[in-house]
Design a protein around this nucleic acid. Structure first.
Length: 203
DNA sequence: GGTAAGATCAGC
DNA sequence: CTGATCTTACCT
């Protein structure tokens, strides 16, 4: 189902619905990540670029699993693994519309957060849905899983995305592997990493 | 065993 | 722009 390249899967994940307990959220912004040199999609910015490690093993496993990692020691971010078992690839979930469970999401995010900001940004998205490092490796297509994913109708999301550079990465930042739904306030504002080299400096 | 950097976020 | 906060990976 998600046994495909990261860019194709990223486009397919726009409009998909992620569920945890009472909260469901429609994905509106994603980023594709490839794998090691020598693989089908070499990607310097990917956690799997330097090969299989305990932390990134889910990226190398079967498609349709949740790959979570801790960012800057503070936040949890979530990816959906893609590509065949043994091939590294994943799609980072960057922003979503909370469609139900606003109460639970709001409790996790705090009282001052407006609805459109509940799941804006990969760290906030996981916070709003209660996704933790314990969910790493979860099969998103097993109904018994605490985190599940329901894909949108094919074609529904294909028309309505634009392309843009990935956010926050310090390497290969110019690769246009970020996708989002236009005119959505939930989409995170684009910021180039302060550590990234100037635009146009090779890739 | 030491250490530097990191697919982030909120607050100045 | 900066600090928070901690795990991983790579170095000696």
């Amino acid at each position: 189902m998600l046994d495909d390249d990261p860019v194709s899967v990223a486009r397919r994940l726009l409009g998909a619905v992620l569920r945890t307990g009472a909260v469901s959220a429609r994905i509106v912004e994603v980023e594709a990540y490839g794998g090691p040199p020598g693989g089908p999609w070499p990607d310097e910015a990917s956690h799997s670029y330097r090969g299989l490690r305990p932390r990134n093993s889910v990226m190398f496993g079967p498609p349709g699993r949740l790959y979570t990692y801790r960012s800057h020691g503070i936040h949890v971010c979530a990816n959906v693994s893609c590509a065949a078992d043994g091939v590294a690839g994943a799609v980072l979930l960057r922003a979503a519309i909370i469609e139900s469970g606003h109460e639970a999401a709001g409790e996790r995010r705090g009282p001052a957060v407006p609805a459109a900001g509940l799941a804006r940004g990969p760290g906030n998205l996981c916070s709003a849905l209660g996704i933790t490092m314990d969910h790493n490796g979860t099969d998103l297509f097993d109904r018994r899983s605490p985190v599940t994913l329901e894909l949108g109708e094919p074609g529904e999301s294909v028309v309505s995305e634009l392309l843009g550079p990935r956010v926050g990465v310090s390497r290969a930042a110019d690769r246009a592997w970020r996708f989002w739904m236009p005119e959505r306030p939930e989409v995170s504002a684009y910021r180039r990493s302060p550590r990234a080299p100037r635009p146009g400096c090779s890739d």
